Computed example of a mutant assay.
Amino acid sequence: MTDLTARQAELAENLARVEERIRGACAAAGRSRDEVTLIVVTKTYPARDVRLLAELGVRHVAENRDQEAAAKADECAGTPVTWHFVGQLQTNKVRSVAGYADVIHSVDRTRLVNALSSAAAHQGRRLDCLVQVALDAESETAGGRGGAAPGSVAKLGDAVEAAQGLRLAGVMTVAPLTGPYAGRPSAAFERLREISTGLCTRHPAATMVSAGMSSDLEEAVAAGATHVRVGSAVLGERPRLG
């Protein structure tokens, strides 16, 4: 067995385990499996793994660092996957990210909305955008892991929807490490669902709820997540970055 064949077999086994977890979570929540999309977070892993995942049927992959993601997306040109950008995004990286990412999960300020709109329009693209919600934040203060405070989500959503080249797709969060929801992913994801419901009253098409990772995908599915972002459970423990 070649190294490539062995790696594909490993990924297939890991994907099967994650799929079983998602199916079980959906059944426990009374939801259809079709309601939840798996996004495999491929950060720190080579383009080869993206291609192997695509061969195994994965259609959504995510990255969080532009320098790595841009090179990987270029190397994987023609691979049938949708690229998601899930990391904190600086405005000086926007033009690059807008060139390959299809979905931006980390929109958290008006300045970023304006930069994404300009880049998308310049490149003739239309980007799906999620408002990242910081559940460790106060009403108008940014959270420690990035994201918009809950009280500013509606205003930011309005800005995205009005921006040329952008489409408001929904909301995203990362279970917070501090604040009232620290260590309480179920409560955090329930709060995100409340925020999503409020946003949908203003923007009915913004139905995407991105929440849950390898450690807490079940809690996210139970709270109504439409997309879960899973990395290590599929790809294995991440290599240490030098």
Rank of each mutant, 00 (worst) to 15 (best):
A175D: 08
V97L: 08
N64Q: 12
R111S: 14
V50S: 06
L192M: 11
C200E: 15
V40S: 03
L241C: 05
L53A: 11
Q90H: 11
E20S: 11
H84D: 01
M213E: 01
E19T: 08
A225V: 05
R126A: 08
A162I: 15
G183Q: 14
T178F: 15
E20M: 07
L127Q: 00
R240D: 14
T173M: 07
S139I: 07
S32P: 07
C26G: 04
D66G: 04
V153P: 00
V58P: 04
S210E: 01
L192F: 07
S118A: 04
A187W: 02
G78H: 13
V97I: 12
A115T: 04
E138V: 13
L217A: 10
T207D: 03
D136K: 06
L130C: 03
A16Q: 05
A187Q: 04
A25I: 01
P204N: 12
L192S: 04
D34R: 13
T141Q: 10
V153N: 01
R21V: 10
V97R: 00
V131M: 00
T226D: 02
G143P: 10
A12L: 12
V230H: 00
G143V: 09
A188S: 08
G147M: 15
G242S: 10
L53M: 15
L168I: 02
T42K: 05
G236L: 10
R59W: 09
T5L: 13
S139G: 04
A159S: 13
R21C: 09
S96Q: 12
L56P: 10
K93V: 02
P80V: 10
D102W: 07
T226I: 03
T91E: 01
R23M: 11
N114L: 10
G157C: 07
T226N: 02
K155F: 11
V133K: 03
E13Y: 07
T178W: 14
A223M: 14
V36I: 14
A16P: 03
